[in-house]
Design a protein around this nucleic acid. Structure first.
Length: 885
RNA sequence: GGGCGCUUAGCUCAGUCGGUAGAGCACUGUGUUCACACCGCAGGGGUCACUGGUUCGAGUCCAGUAGCGCCCACCA
């Protein structure tokens, strides 16, 4: 066997195993038995891996590796999203560098160029997921615009159209003047910004009276076609129907009654601009008002804006205010905090614009999607997101699905010359339906979420009735970020129920948002991001995964620091753990030689350490498995960390060292080696889903069954291995050893020196326990001799203490400072007295005795009595110290 | 305006059934014992944001307050 390096070297190990796993077909489903399926949230095809992805996909890889080891038929389907606006932005930026716009190259060339780019660079993020160790079935990878996927999108559109769920309508929609497209309500972000509230006077046509209206957007007044007041507002009751003159424009507009106007706000009168405000649009519909468009799709004033035509909307605002002011028509201008709507993608201020778009009627689709969540057929983890989802779904509004972009699924609607709509799955089908009439396809493309909303069924083959679809739909769990519950999760549930007549997944696990050290969201543009690949470069994949997973408490955000001076303390902790695993394994490996005679399976033993580690291992398996089932990934990581480091390394290896590392080749030695290999091998299997590479590397060097740890069975907890007695006894043993070490530390006993240890206790079974484990105590406490008796009688000057009802003494002639020792013991007595007093008070409390559960009372009493006995003994010790002994 | 989350050791965070607070890092002392200094051993450190309530008992449950963060929302 080759010498193992002293420290774990992740990079060569990662490079070695991933290709082997891949070519062995381990990532593929077995097709047999119980199934477990995940379709990953497809990252943007333009994307590169960021730290949030690293967490998201690590979690999914943990789940899929765990279920695979449990023997499930596991399938994890990866893929990418064409990400309409995001991708188009990337390509437009590229063109801009060449001094071109998309209009210069034309639609066809632009789309072609985008495809080229996707083919060339689109796979980057998937290869980065491979570096993360993800065991996904890459042969099944899908793209939301691949051939089969297009069929799915077209099928969906056609079916929804035929069911009357899709319609075309003229509405005030959210328009991004930079992206030059409509966007849906949920793609608009609201942010409070400091602004002004302008109070403008509108004169009546007759007389000198004025009505004051307030607005945050004075430039839109140019498009006003009415002023409204609440019908119950006494100030205006007599004035309804009168005509106002719109300043600057001179248009005659009516004063109308409408409930939309609230009497309490300002003067109670509100200007109505039906073409540039969604509410005003509704008012306009009710009163049949004209809709005057004064701002165009670029955010510039139109011809309708008169002398302001051609001005940018913000410039126009200033000019309008100036001009009104010059005419004495500004009553006042207040400071005002207004929620400003911006584009989720480019942060440009949204312009509400009257335009014709395609919509999906949501009420009908939402109904069943509400039911399945309410009935917990789809379960949210953490549960609180269920309410978030339900409240949104219950107030859902129609979905604007058309986008004025070039990159995306072109809307499958053609029109004939006389304006008839032909909706078809393909141009061929459309032509057939047109029966010779010339037709023209709609220019717009579909919202990206329209296609990704079909993800689980589409990647499994839908609309074709494939074997995958039949076998793996519904999928098991969707792991995703909370900010796309509306955008994506809700739509998958709706489309899944509609087309598959079944939920798309049983559970939705909302994982943590990764924040930077300031608590801000990681952002490339802010430069606060951490590149996971840099982290992997520095510490290895397993360390990155573990660092993230150990923090992945259910639904809680994670702060993740950036790399400073080539260091990242959180990942360093994980790297240190990996190294600990490495070195513990190195110890085992160097002692089992060529492993001849090492058999798999636990070799039974009566020794305390063996019984204890087996019980600990068993309960670790139990805890870890339950935690995985409940998505408490941090607990999985923590439990394994402490089992491995504290129980296995600090105690079990140390306790079994003399046998395991023995030069002799007795049966006892062989059995000890079998056992340590067993515990290590089982631990590696438990750790594998979190840290796939290091566990495979070591596992392959250990005696093992099977080709890869990936395919090894997940350990199972066995009730017979619970061993409360071993745990209690071990606790006592650990307490004794720790106390002796503590004494050594306090009195600076040189590490080479081997004092005696005297123990006194009237408990016969404790005495037996100490005697049985004398060799262990001698080794680990570094004492020369252990004497046990029913009472401590000792002549030499010694350090004294009480532990688990035992009196212990370590004779340290010459090292002990009597005064200091007296102080120490006095402090000890005081502490115990305080605790005992507290307990006594409780035991004295009638209500406590009456109402507390019997175990709690019992425990308090035992602890109290124990303390009293200990205090008694310590007092005795103190007396003997006074004597100078 | 509505909803949700957070506030625990110097820092980053755990804390399931209410039973008297834990981890990692950092810190202090110590150690080169043949797996590991990316380590061992020992140790110090907390008014669990605040106020009130329920309870024999509250970090944990309830009500409220403050600060921070997030989501939703058409009041001009």
């Amino acid at each position: 066997m080759t010498e193992l390096p002293k420290a774990y070297e992740p990079h060569s190990v990662e490079k070695k195993w991933y290709p082997i796993w891949l070519s062995s077909g381990y990532f593929k489903p077995s097709g047999e038995g119980r199934k477990y399926c995940i379709t990953i949230p497809p990252p943007n095809v333009t994307g590169s891996l960021h730290i949030g992805h690293a967490l998201c996909y690590s979690i999914q890889d943990v789940l899929i590796r765990w279920k695979r080891m449990q023997g499930y038929d596991t399938l994890c389907v990866p893929g990418t999203d064409h990400a309409g606006i995001a991708t188009q932005n990337v390509l437009e930026k590229q063109l801009k560098k060449e001094g071109l716009t998309r209009h210069d190259v034309g639609r066809e060339k632009f789309v072609e160029r985008t495809w080229q780019w996707v083919h060339e660079y689109g796979g980057v993020i998937l290869s980065q997921l491979q570096r993360l160790g993800c065991s996904f079935d890459w042969d099944r990878a899908r793209f939301t615009m691949d051939e089969g996927y297009i069929d799915a999108v077209m099928e969906c559109f056609v079916q929804w159209w035929e069911a009357g769920l899709i319609y075309r309508g003229k509405r005030v929609i959210n328009w991004c003047p930079r992206c030059l497209t409509a966007i849906s309500d949920i793609e608009v972000k609201h942010e409070d910004r400091a602004g002004k509230l302008y109070h403008i006077r509108y004169p009546f046509k007759e007389g000198s009276a004025m009505v004051v209206v307030a607005t945050t957007r004075p430039e839109t007044m140019l498009g006003d076609t009415a002023v409204a007041a609440n019908p119950s507002d006494d100030r205006y009751r007599q004035l309804f129907g009168k005509t106002l003159i719109l300043p600057l424009i001179g248009r005659e507009i009516p004063l109308i009654p409408d409930d939309y106007a609230q009497s309490e706000f300002g003067s109670g009168a509100v200007k109505i601009t039906p073409a540039h405000d969604a509410n005003d649009f509704e008012v306009g519909m009710r009163h049949n008002l004209p809709k005057v468009i004064v701002i165009d799709e670029h955010g510039r004033m139109t011809e309708e804006a008169g002398r302001y035509a051609g001005l940018d909307r913000f410039e126009a605002r200033e000019r309008v205010v100036q001009d009104l002011s010059a005419q004495g028509l500004i009553e006042k201008i207040d400071d005002y905090v207004l929620p400003e709507a911006t584009c989720d993608r480019c942060h440009t201020v949204i312009e509400p614009l009257l335009s014709e778009q395609w919509f999906v009627r949501m009420k009908e689709l939402a109904g069943p999607a509400i039911d399945v969540v309410r009935e917990r057929r789809v379960r949210f983890v953490p549960e609180r997101y269920e309410r978030t989802y339900l409240e949104w779904m219950e107030n859902i509004r129609d979905w604007t699905i058309s986008r004025q972009l070039w990159w995306g699924h072109r809307i499958p609607v053609w029109t004939t010359e006389d304006g008839e709509y032909i909706v078809a799955r393909s141009e061929k089908e459309a032509l057939e339906k047109a029966a010779g009439r010339p037709i023209k396809q709609d220019e717009d493309v579909l919202d990206t979420w329209f296609s990704s909303g079909l993800w689980p069924q589409a990647v499994l083959g839908w609309p074709k009735q494939t074997e995958d679809l039949a076998r793996y739909y519904p999928t098991s769990v969707l792991t995703t970020a909370r900010d796309i519950i509306y955008l994506w999760v809700s739509r998958m549930i709706m489309s899944g129920l509609y087309f598959m007549k079944d939920i798309p997944f049983d559970e939705v696990y909302i994982y943590a948002t990764v924040l930077d050290e300031q608590g801000r969201r990681h952002s490339k543009s802010l430069g606060t991001g951490v590149d996971p690949l840099d982290v992997i470069e520095l510490y290895g994949t397993d360390a990155l995964r573990f660092a993230l997973l150990v923090r992945a408490a259910r639904g809680q955000d994670i702060r993740f620091a950036s790399i400073k001076e080539k260091r990242q303390p959180q990942v360093e902790e994980a790297r240190n753990f990996a190294n600990k695993i490495w070195n513990a394994s190195r110890f085992v490996l160097m002692n089992i030689g060529d492993a001849s005679g090492i058999e798999p399976g636990w070799v039974p033993s009566d020794a305390l350490a063996d019984r204890w580690i087996l019980a600990e291992l068993n309960s670790t398996i139990e805890q870890v498995t339950v935690a995985l089932e409940e998505y408490r990934i941090n607990e999985v990581a923590q439990t394994l960390y402490h089992f491995f480091w504290d129980s296995f390394c600090d105690w079990y290896i140390e306790l079994s060292k003399s046998l395991v590392a023995s030069r002799e080749s007795t049966e006892e030695v062989r059995a000890a080696r079998c056992r340590i290999v067993y515990v290590l091998e089982t631990s590696l299997r438990l750790l594998h889903p979190l840290m796939p590479y290091i566990t495979e590397e070591i596992w392959q060097r250990l005696p093992h069954e099977g080709e890869s740890i990936m395919m090894a069975p997940w350990p199972e907890a066995l009730p017979v291995r619970e061993d409360q007695q071993a745990r209690e006894q071990m606790e006592t043993l650990i307490a004794v050893i720790t106390r002796v070490r503590n004494i050594r530390s306090i009195w600076n006993v040189p590490s080479q020196s081997r004092p005696k240890l005297c123990i006194g206790t009237d408990n016969a079974s404790t005495r037996a326990l100490i005697s049985r484990n004398e060799e262990q105590i001698k080794r680990l406490a570094r004492v020369a001799q252990v004497t046990v008796s029913d009472r401590l009688r000792i002549a030499e000057r010694s350090a004294r203490d009480i532990v688990s009802g035992m009196e212990i003494a370590v004779p340290l002639e010459g090292l002990i400072d009597l005064e200091k020792e007296r102080e120490r013991i006095t402090r000890e007595i005081t502490r115990k007295e305080n605790e005992a007093r507290g307990l006594a008070a409780r035991l004295d409390n009638a209500s406590f005795m009456e109402r507390a559960p019997r175990e709690v009372v019992e425990e308090a009493r035992n602890r109290h009595d124990e303390l009293i006995a200990e205090i008694e003994k310590l007092r005795g010790t103190l007396e003997s110290l006074e004597d100078g002994s």
